[in-house]
Structure formats: C-alpha cells, structure tokens
Design a protein around this nucleic acid. Structure first.
Length: 103
DNA sequence: AGGTTGACTCACC
DNA sequence: TGGTGAGCCAACC
C-alpha cells in the first residue's frame, strides 16, 4: 500500500462525513483497514490539498479536542452545523459521532 | 541508519 | 473527569 493510496482512502472517507456529525482519527484509521495508523490519518489531513474541499473540521481526536492551532475557526464551522461543546471546549462526541459508518 | 516528531489512542491511575 | 505514560508508525531530519 503506497502512501498516496492510504491518503486517498482517508480523503474518500472524510468527504462522506455528513454535516452535523464528527468522526475521530482512530475510526478513520479503522475504516481504511489499518487501525493502528491514527497518527497517519492526521498526517494525511495535514497534507490535504485545500482545493479538495474536504470537511476536515468534522474530524476530531478521541477525546473531542479540536485541531491544534485551528480551534477557533473549526469551532465556528462546527457550531454552524449544530455541533455542541462541553464546558472544557471539546466536542460532545457521544452526541454527534457519525455512527452510521460503524454498522 | 538512528533519533525525533506528531491534526493519535488506550489503559491506568 | 483529568493527567500520565507507553505503544504506535511513517515522515523528516
């Protein structure tokens, strides 16, 4: 499996995340068939071309934390979709997780 | 070639 | 709940 293939799979999954839901790096890694590569999912998104128009603001880590250095704008985008946050500023994952993909 | 780094996660305190 | 430490893996010095 080439790096670009893995990246493309990640992008394909992220592209399908419905508005108003979120998903974690670990879950994306699982869906690609490489459950140990959660860190690589982050790399893929970091290197994702802006023109791809991916809803990468809907990807958060397993504790609900936002992307380092992008918290403010990301939070706005998520709030516009109806995502709610906890007191500590982290996404309320249990409520908004994209569950359909787990079936 | 070997050490460091990070958009991570899990198991334990 | 929240913090910490170990495991993780490919990219990048």
């Amino acid at each position: 499996m080439e790096r670009s293939d893995f990246y493309q799979e990640v992008y394909a999954i992220v592209k399908e995340i419905p508005p108003g839901t979120v998903i974690t790096y670990g879950l994306i890694a699982r869906l690609t068939g490489y459950p140990q590569r959660s860190r690589m999912v982050g790399q893929a998104l970091y290197h994702a071309p802006a023109v791809a128009g991916l809803p990468c603001h809907r990807v958060v880590n397993s504790s609900g934390k936002l992307v380092p250095g992008w918290e403010e704008e990301q939070r706005h985008l998520l709030e516009q979709e109806g995502i709610t946050f906890r007191k500590n500023g982290q996404v309320n994952i249990s409520r908004h997780l994209w569950k359909e993909i787990l079936l």
